[in-house]
Amino acid sequence: MSIPRNWRTRQQRYSLKAEVCNTCNKHIFPPRDVCPHCAAEKQSWTNLSGQGEVFSYTTMYNAPAGFEEYAPYTMALVKLAEGPMVTAQLTDVDAQDVKIGMPVEMVTRKLSQEGEEGQILYGYKFRPMLREAA
């Protein structure tokens, strides 16, 4: 894992810091140089609500290197309320309870760590809406 790259992207990882296109007004996540909708180059920073719904998902029983500790876990394609689609891990939910269309909200969790002595990487995951889960 690259410390400089993780450091540059920390705000989008911790809190879904996003952009809104100055030309077509669509939300862009992750932030990038050119709008994927209209190819304009000017964007402004914005915050997303963190809410969305599960668009599709798959449960990982054989996790890739660095994530074995968390297996089994569910990866989802989440459609955010503002439009962008993100791939993220689901948390605080059992695999058999995940459903397409399930409302979810963003939380900041541990993504991975470089052993006992290395850096801990934090970032966004999604979980079922807390008030509905209770």
Partner: peptide, 13 residues
């Protein structure tokens, strides 16, 4: 706390 939680993640929420 779950596997992906610690004092930092809980403090943020």
């Amino acid at each position: 706390a779950g596997l992906d939680e610690d004092t930092l993640t809980m403090s943020v929420e």
